[in-house]
Amino acid sequence: MRRELTAKGKATRHRIVEGAAATLRENGVGSVTLDDIMARTSTSKSQLFHYFPGGKDELLLAVAHYEADQVLEDQQPYLGCLDSWENWERWRDVVVARYEILGDTCPLGSLFLQVGRSTPGARAIVAELMRRWQESLAAGIRALRAAGGPSAEFLSAEFDVDARAAALLAAIQGGVSILLATGRSDHLRAALDQGLADLRRDLTPAGAVAPR
């Protein structure tokens, strides 16, 4: 079992992961060596293996975890306060802009190609990312319902918030997959626009005008 890192040790490990992530973003996963990362982070080989005994594979998984956190962090503050349609629209713009900037060079996708998406560590990172993302979307939908006050009572018992959040997340991932393959964000935009339009329709009482 590994000893618990001190505050200084945690800071050093985080610095190495951040430096490795920046190096991989700039140069691509396939062309980066441990020597490149050591030079970027001013880390000796013994120090690197002290924090990552499994070598490059363990470091890549740590970077994948860091990049997964960045996926959600880049959507803030809107992902954490989806309590109005205005914030949902702003969140949508942030998501589209993020993937348009990344284009077909999504660092998280590249990392998983390198370490193997089916490895237990990689699968756990993907599962945790999707769980946190879906829970945030579901919380946002519930916040919209709560903001609707008594009018929210019109919703039928068949309106499944968690299923709607899952469908919205799946639509995003489909749009991102096409963007990564083609370099075009049209499908991602369409998926988000349709998902929000459906949500707005279903959360608006019959005869009422959907808020903008």
Score class of each variant (00 low, 15 high):
Phe112Ser: 12
Asp162Thr: 11
Glu86Lys: 15
Ala21Tyr: 14
Ala147Gln: 14
Leu102Ser: 13
Ser185Ala: 11
Glu89Asn: 15
Arg131Asp: 14
Thr182Val: 08
Ser42Ala: 11
Ser84Tyr: 14
Arg145Glu: 13
Thr12Phe: 01
Ala146Pro: 05
Trp88Ala: 00
Glu86Tyr: 01
Ala127Asn: 06
Glu18Lys: 02
Cys106Ala: 08
Leu199Tyr: 01
Gly54Met: 06
Asp74Ile: 05
Arg13Val: 00
Asn27Phe: 12
Thr41Lys: 09
Asp198Val: 07
Cys106Asn: 15
Leu102Lys: 15
Ala20Asn: 10
Leu144Thr: 08
Leu203Lys: 02
Gly19Val: 11
Val71Lys: 07
Gly116Phe: 05
Gln47Lys: 05
Gly207Asn: 05
Arg201His: 05
Ala21Met: 07
Pro120Ser: 02
Gly9Ile: 08
Ala7His: 07
Gly207His: 12
Ala167Met: 06
His65Gly: 15
Asp35Gly: 06
Leu188Gln: 05
Ala146Asp: 14
Ala68Leu: 15
Asp74Thr: 06
Leu137His: 09
Ala146Phe: 15
Pro205Ser: 00
Cys106Met: 13
His14Gln: 10
Pro211Glu: 01
Ile101Pro: 03
Phe49Leu: 14
Thr23Lys: 07
Val95Tyr: 15
Ala68Glu: 04
Glu153Asn: 14
Arg200Lys: 07
Val32Ala: 04
Gln134Ile: 15
Glu67Ala: 10
Gly80Val: 03
Leu192Glu: 03
Ser44Glu: 06
Ser46Ile: 01
Ser44Val: 02
His65Ala: 13
Leu113Ala: 03
Gly140Tyr: 10
Glu73Cys: 03
Trp88Glu: 13
Gly149Tyr: 11
Gly19Glu: 09
Glu58Ser: 12
Asn87Ala: 07
Ala166Asn: 04
